[in-house]
């Protein structure tokens, strides 16, 4: 596994800040009525998404659930087209027909966000099956929330991936709550990583139990997912759990009665971006200026994206009726 150099680390920082600014702006636009539907923000989880996606190569694949903006941006989706999708414009990555939960960019092997909890997990197995079937190199990174580990899709998909030795890194983004229900109130296994044991054998075959990683530390996530991807390429599926925290509500308008302000505050202090910035300034003398520049550029990128989205056209009647079938 390649150790990331300074340039790479600064790029991760750029991505994390870009995601944060993107999400903050989305919240504003939602309040202004310019974004509709459900809006699930990634604020607090940036280290997991950026670190995990950074572990992949261009021939690898990414698929995730509905909290997908951060994953899409980390995979390199154009912020303009992501923002245009938020606003339902025809220049959006999904032509304005998918919305916040459904950002896909086939060219980048970003297979989309999916709105049905767990619905994308069998799709991940199927994409991995294609690679195994055609003897292609590459792994599928399938991200999911802790909530999806209790749905039937999770069991069936992980089990099949173990039976068929599919090259999948199953990554649980454990942000502590499935909507408002804390993990320990929803899962018999409080440590979700233990689920891997259900699909593994004493002789080492089946699902590999990967690490339970500090999901607020982008370097730790990168290391864990890199190692898991390497294993998955050669042998088969791996389960990794990333312990992270959602600093905003489940979606917009969540009254958050299920947790205290103090709890949220404690994670703000140890938030992933501040932590990484601290690491960078400790590691590289005089890097602050570069980081400040990246902060400013992120703001500009988001301003430009909003401008692009606002000035884009709405989808047309032709768009409405197209792509139901292959003609």
């Amino acid at each position: 596994m390649a150790k990331p150099n300074k340039e790479t680390l600064l790029d991760w920082y750029r991505q994390m800040v870009l995601i944060r600014r993107f999400e903050e702006r989305c919240a504003e636009l939602y309040q202004q009525g310019l974004i509709g539907g459900f809006l699930h923000l990634y604020i607090g989880q940036e280290a997991t998404g950026v670190g995990a996606v950074a572990a992949l190569g261009p021939n690898d694949h990414v698929i995730t659930a509905y909290r997908d903006h951060g994953i899409a941006l980390a995979r390199g989706v154009d912020p303009n087209r992501a923002m245009a999708e938020m606003m339902g414009k025809r220049t959006g990555v999904s032509g304005g027909k998918g919305g916040s939960m459904h950002l896909a960019d086939r060219a980048l092997h970003m297979w989309g966000g999916y709105g049905i909890v767990g619905g994308h997990l069998p799709l991940a197995a199927g994409i991995a099956l294609k690679m195994k079937y055609l003897e292609e190199d590459g792994v599928v990174l399938a991200l999911m929330g802790d909530g999806s580990t209790n749905i039937g899709y999770f069991h069936e998909s992980l089990n099949l991936s173990a039976v068929w030795d599919l090259p999948v890194v199953w990554l649980i983004e454990n942000n502590q709550y499935g909507m408002g229900t804390a993990v320990e109130r929803a899962s018999g296994a409080k440590e979700l990583i233990r689920r891997a044991m259900a699909y593994s054998s004493e002789d080492g075959s089946g699902m590999k139990m990967g690490p339970r990683v500090d999901g607020m530390d982008v370097l730790a996530v990168y290391d864990a997912v890199s190692e898991a991807a390497e294993y998955a390429r050669k042998h088969g599926p791996v389960l990794v759990e990333s312990l992270t925290y959602r600093l905003e509500g489940h979606s917009m308008g969540d009254p958050q009665r299920y947790r205290t302000k103090e709890e949220v505050e404690s994670f703000v202090v140890s938030g992933p971006i501040g932590r990484f910035r601290h690491y960078l300034t400790e590691t590289y003398k005089g890097v602050e200026k570069a980081l400040d520049k990246l902060d400013a550029e992120a703001l500009q990128t988001i301003d430009d994206a909003v401008e692009f989205a606002k000035s884009s056209d709405n989808p047309t009647y032709e768009d409405l009726i197209s792509h139901v079938y292959v003609d």
Partner: peptide
């Protein structure tokens, strides 16, 4: 390919494989 008795993933994995080009 024989599968386990798992209709959700039989259908769902087939969707994914089809999306991917099989």
């Amino acid at each position: 390919r024989d599968t386990p008795i798992s209709e959700m993933v039989i259908a769902g994995a087939a969707v994914g494989a089809a999306m991917a080009g099989l």
